[in-house]
Design a protein around this nucleic acid. Structure first.
Lengths: 328, 328
DNA sequence: ATACTTTATGTAATCGATTACAGCTATAGC
DNA sequence: GCTATAGCTGTAATCGATTACATAAAGTAT
């Protein structure tokens, strides 16, 4: 039923080899032959069966993108960047959802291997990455984004978390703030430990003590932000200035403050990480660190494509992208 | 290099046919043979080459999901639902991004056809869908979600937009509101025209006139919401109650109000469509219509899988899912 | 014991595109 | 005029899994 190279060859009066060569833009085809084939392709409405091509070439022209969740503007903005770059090169992208857990993450890795993707970009769901070695064993190049993991080495594209956090806190300090709370995700996650590092460094550089009880860690979601802010505010002498290490925590924390306007001081100032569409309308937010999310995706894809197209194994490359500060 | 059925067959001392049958859980294999093959599969670390299978069976075990954009919690929540359902059935999902324009949308359709997906779920980017007929011609089943389009008929899963909008407006009316503005996307998009329909119906049912100048249409994004709210507020005698027909418009409109606290009355009450993670912390929001987004995705996927697995062409099916009202 | 099912497995063709190799033509070089 | 070379194009094997058909073995009926 479907139209194959054979049909096109017949129509154009050439062999299937020639059709294939035209399809692949091989040089060394007479211009008139090429034209004949091209019109035959259009006339027949031929569309290549990529499964057949993949079988022969063992390249699928698709890469996998594995993210911890789909409903997340950070991950999806990175995905946009990846797609930007891939599409330029004629590659397709399979997005897989790790559902925030290792089991699903591993499961999706298997799926991607079976789908014979040419490469994989991973935003890891946890701090542990031994299961990614399957990809290595299957000869599939990998690029990590946003976080590094234990037990697996690969190229990576990361934000300069330390300096990003530092600059936000320094900004608040220079506008007079002197006492800071911290809300962040688990220190096991490399991005959060880096941001905490930047936070501490800014405080020590300005001779501000780091007070244990007003440092809070949770997971990376809205609910956690809400709870941690509640804990923070219910202490004696809660801090007026709070650095919050990711967008979703920021949203949750703001939610708490809005729900508790009476008790929470209106003088609270928040420095947040990630500048999203809604960051500017979150109350209390005075400055946010903006990661170049889309660019991170683009760079990751570019790096991956380079790996795919060069067989020689170069040492792992680590790209750090600068953040910028957005004041509200 | 890679391990194939041949290697497994050799190891197990059977033919490739038998290995294949075990892989496909065919009945009529002696239990001991099956066991032999299974251990051989584990021992060799065999992983099937899906390209080869697809070539032979012309089924890939993947479906395509085409969305207008990735950075959009509505679309991605639907995507979650789709994945929930697909993954139960061992299917994979390729997400494609139409970038809000018809050209890219058509381009992604071609990509999906070439990838030989078994079916496609589409959230259309515009009101026009003639280009989707390519899928039909390629024999690929399609299910639409959220919107209907002109020039292309298919199964669809939609929210009950009319009653959703009606109930939100009726709710405000019953709490005393008497004069309503409307902010929505183009009426060419079926979901918005339905919501506008519900809006009007509520007003007429309660004998409230529909005043032209306070009805605003734009596109479906944050910026548009901002601009339309500005227009609305700059009129003589602006309405105190506003129905906003989607989440992003709602966000944009709120942004305007927050940026113009002095001029805008604090008595403004908004009824919004879509209840998202942040809906509850948008100021002014008094009620939102919640679509069962994830369920919409699930139902769409279930419908698609049924189409894929039954050859008999049944008439198009249209599923309407009830919305619910969330008060803030 | 014979013929006929039924059950389990093997043989080999097949899906559609790619590509090594062969073959043919035309041109250049002598 | 004859060979060497380059430039195009065709022939046919190939990728890995599936499956129609063939075959063999075991069970059943008479």
């Amino acid at each position: 039923m479907a139209i194959t190279v054979k049909d096109v060859a017949l129509k154009a009066g050439v062999s299937t080899a020639t059709v294939s060569r035209v399809l692949n833009n091989d040089p060394g085809i007479k211009p008139q032959t090429r034209k004949k084939v091209k019109t035959a392709i259009l006339d027949t409405g031929y569309r290549m069966n990529k499964a057949a091509r993949s079988l022969k070439t063992s390249r699928t022209g698709t890469i996998g993108l594995l993210v911890p969740e789909l409903v997340n503007d950070f991950f999806m903005t990175v995905a946009q960047g990846v797609e930007d770059e891939l599409h330029n090169s004629g590659y397709g992208m399979i997005i897989c959802n790790a559902n925030e857990n290792r089991r699903d993450e591993e499961d999706r890795i298997n799926l991607l291997i079976e789908q014979c993707v040419d490469g994989v970009i991973i935003i890891p769901a946890s701090s542990e990455g031994r299961h990614f070695n399957k990809l290595r064993r299957a000869g599939i190049p990998v690029v990590m984004v946003d976080r590094l993991v234990e037990g697996f080495e690969a190229d990576a594209v990361l934000a300069d978390n330390v300096n990003g956090a530092y600059s936000a806190v320094a900004h608040l300090i220079s506008s007079g703030c002197r006492r800071f709370g911290f809300i962040g995700g688990s220190l096991e996650l490399s991005n959060f430990s880096e941001r905490f590092e930047g936070f501490k460094r800014a405080l020590t550089d300005y001779n501000i003590p780091v007070e244990e009880p007003i440092i809070k860690f949770g997971d990376v979601h809205v609910e956690s932000g809400y709870d941690l802010m509640e804990e923070l505010m219910n202490q004696d002498n809660p801090p007026q200035n709070i650095f919050i290490a990711n967008y979703f925590l920021h949203v949750g924390a703001t939610k708490y403050l809005l729900n508790n306007r009476e008790t929470a001081s209106s003088e609270i100032r928040i420095a947040g990480f990630d500048d999203m569409a809604l960051s500017s309308i979150l109350g209390f937010s005075s400055v946010t660190v903006s990661q170049p999310m889309r660019e991170m995706g683009r760079r990751a894809a570019a790096l991956l494509l380079r790996r795919i197209n060069t067989k020689t194994p170069a040492p792992c490359q680590l790209i750090r992208l600068k953040t910028s500060l957005v004041t509200h």
